[in-house]
């Protein structure tokens, strides 16, 4: 797994609650037997105006100009700002794969669905939970920043989008004004992300303990074996 290092990234605001994994990566793309290549179909139904199917040349498809990730200032966004219960629904790991393939490294929301949250860490993606009020402030700051960088209703693309600096080590986020927001993260998951550790490798360090458990359990509950 790729190590998660401190980085600075453009924030794309996705102002919706309950963004489900069917929306993040629709089911027709789950037919792939690969782990990569899902980025062009991230948010497919919102991003394109036609019906997406696997095998299409996505560069030829009509895009929805109103969808946030289609605005040129967010083309290189790596931080997604969203509302509550992000990633609800299916357990499909294709959701974090698609986000990561697109270039997203951090998702900031007031809450996440459990399975999605867990899947993120397995793929070097950092989900950050912040209070509603802080999320509101960030949405407002992104909107205000965009007003400044929009001239006569046209995006001034030479100016980059609103950016945040995320430091996992110190569990802090720095805004353009210099304000620092701290966040919580589970110590074990943080460690795995920082060092790019492979869960299976870690677990296999405990082979003897697993065997001992199985041995004991086989006495207690032999019908399970």
């Amino acid at each position: 797994m790729k190590k998660f290092e401190t980085f600075r990234g453009i924030v794309a605001p996705l102002d919706r609650s309950n963004v489900d994994t069917d929306a993040i990566i629709p089911k027709q793309f789950l037919k792939s037997i690969k782990r990569s290549g899902f980025g062009p179909n991230l948010f497919d139904a919102w991003r394109y105006l036609d019906n997406g199917e696997p095998g299409m040349d996505n560069s030829q498809r009509p895009v929805n100009p109103d969808f946030v990730l289609n605005q040129s200032r967010y083309k290189n966004a790596s931080v997604l700002l969203a509302r509550k219960n992000f990633g609800c629904g299916s357990s499909r790991e294709h959701a974090p794969w698609a986000l990561q393939d697109f270039g997203i490294r951090v998702i900031i929301a007031p809450s996440f669905a459990d399975i999605f949250y867990n899947n993120c860490f397995k793929n070097g993606l950092l989900p950050v939970v912040l209070e509603d009020a802080v999320i509101d402030t960030l949405f407002n700051e992104v909107a205000a920043f965009n007003e400044i960088t929009t001239f006569n209703k046209k995006e001034v693309t030479a100016l980059p989008g609103y950016q945040l600096e995320i430091d996992l080590k110190t569990q802090s986020i720095k805004t353009p004004s210099g304000a620092v927001i701290s966040f919580d993260v589970d110590a074990f998951r943080k460690d795995c992300l920082l060092h790019g550790l492979d869960d299976i490798g870690l677990t296999l360090q405990h082979v003897e303990e697993i065997k001992a458990y199985e041995h004991r359990r086989q006495q207690e509950a032999p019908w399970l074996f």
Partner: peptide
């Protein structure tokens, strides 16, 4: 590797959905 694994809890089992990385983890470590 499916979120509706919660179904099996009806029989007094602890059952939950997992992602593909965890599918691999269970296959190789139980």
């Amino acid at each position: 590797g499916d979120s509706h694994t919660s179904t099996h809890g009806a029989l007094g089992a602890l059952a939950f959905g997992i992602g593909t990385s965890e599918v691999e983890h269970v296959l190789s470590t139980q």
